[in-house]
Every structure is written in C-alpha cells, then in structure tokens.
Design a protein around this nucleic acid. Structure first.
Length: 218
DNA sequence: GACCAGGCACATC
DNA sequence: GATGTGCATGGT
C-alpha cells in the first residue's frame, strides 16, 4: 500500500515510505476472524503478543473462541484459559463486558456489529468497561476495516522522539494528526500502525541513540 | 532479578 | 487535568 496523495505534513509520508521499504508488508492483524481480532485486541493490552498467542491457543483448543461459547462459560473458567496473557482476572471481566455489548445490542453477531455506523460503534465500544481508545480503534480497524488510526505506546514514542508532536499530546490529538495528514484508507492505516509496532520492537527508543534505526535521520 | 510488553480504570490532588 | 497505582504472565 503506497500513499498516492500529498499529505499536509510530509514527515508522515516519509516515515511510512521508509518503514515500508525497510520492513515490507506486515500482514496484520494476526487473527483468523473478526471475533478473534477483537479478543486479541483486549488480551494484548500492555502485554507482549507472544503471551496473547498462548491464550488464544488455549481458547481455540477448548473450542471457546466464538461469541456463543465465550459467552456461555463462566468468568473463572475464562480467566484460567487466558492466564498466559497476564492480568487474567481483569481481562476475563473485560471480555465478558465486550461480549455483553455484542450479544445485547448486536445479537452476538460480529457481522451485525460490523454494519453499525463506525462513529456510533466507537462510542459503544468506549462505553464498555475495559475498552479504551486504542482497543476500540484496533477493533474498528483490524476487525471491521474501518479507517480508524490506532495510536499506541510506540506511536507516541516515535512522534515525541522526533518532536513531531509535543509530549503532552493526548490520544485523540495524536489520532487527529494522522487522520488530518493521511488519506483515510483502511489498508494504509492498517499497514502504518503495524510498521510502527515493528520498528518499535526492533529498536529501543529509550536509549539516547537508536543506531541502525530506519528513522534515525528522518 | 530487573525490566519490559501492541492499556485501562480508578483514586487522589 | 495531571499524576500515581494495581493488574500478572513470560521473554530477555
């Protein structure tokens, strides 16, 4: 996915092109169904993805990775299945809260949820206890292909380090910056965020210098 | 053994 | 509004 249109701030385009050239397409989200993506989005909160894959595998092995099965098992059982992802008690609660929204308003159907107006859906997701802006936008973008840019810790680290935005910027400020300066293509938002995570994992942004980082001289 | 990872809610000031 | 804290496992 290449940016074909001029953006107001040329740095985002430069960063994207540099990252894409360096790392290539990332093929996100690593999940087979929209429901698996949504579950993964909650499980990966402040957690390494390698731990999430163990939890997802447990859910699959127990044949629980569907809206109906996950809704039917009790919270204790759920927390044991997702234990490897960390914060398992809280995340079991959060998954149950998401499932409550899915069942009570969308008949337990991700397809029905997909048809909801994206802005309305974002509001509904944010009303769920345990779903904040990053998780909500991850579900919108990666489960439903809506053009919502996902801002995470890596995104902030990169933008702040390169002084593209002030460190006091809040989530909505940062997202608005991407929305204002990029064409609203879900495929672009998808790839860009995945590339940011990729470069963030590869290079340590807490060190004074990031030798070899493709964004070193951006 | 310390530090970190694809957050969020809540208490307190 | 800003800042601090709890939540927990597994890899480096």
């Amino acid at each position: 996915m290449k940016i074909k249109y001029k953006t107001r701030d040329p740095r985002l385009k430069r960063i994207y092109k540099r990252l894409y050239k360096c790392f290539g397409p990332q093929g996100w989200w690593p999940g087979e169904t929209p429901f698996e993506v949504a579950v993964g989005a909650i499980l990966t909160q402040n957690t390494a993805w390698s731990n999430v894959t163990k939890a997802i595998k447990n859910l699959k092995d127990a044949r629980c990775l569907s809206p109906n099965h996950l809704w039917s098992i009790n919270k204790l059982k759920l927390s044991e299945l997702i234990r490897p992802s960390g914060y398992f008690n809280i995340k079991a609660e959060r998954l149950k809260s998401f499932l409550a929204l899915l069942h009570k308003r969308y008949k337990g159907s991700m397809n029905t949820m997909r048809k909801e107006d994206p802005l309305i859906l974002r509001e509904r997701l944010l009303e769920v206890k345990g779903i904040g802006p990053e998780t909500a936008d991850s579900i919108l973008l990666y489960a439903f292909n809506h053009p919502a840019f996902v801002v995470d810790a890596y995104t902030k680290r990169i933008l702040f380090r390169h002084k593209i935005l002030p460190e006091k910027s809040r989530y909505e400020d940062i997202q608005e910056f991407f929305h204002r300066n990029l064409p609203h293509y879900p495929a672009l938002f998808n790839e860009f965020h995945a590339l940011i995570v990729k470069v963030g994992k590869e290079y340590c942004w807490r060190r004074p210098r990031c030798r070899g980082c493709p964004l070193e001289d951006i």
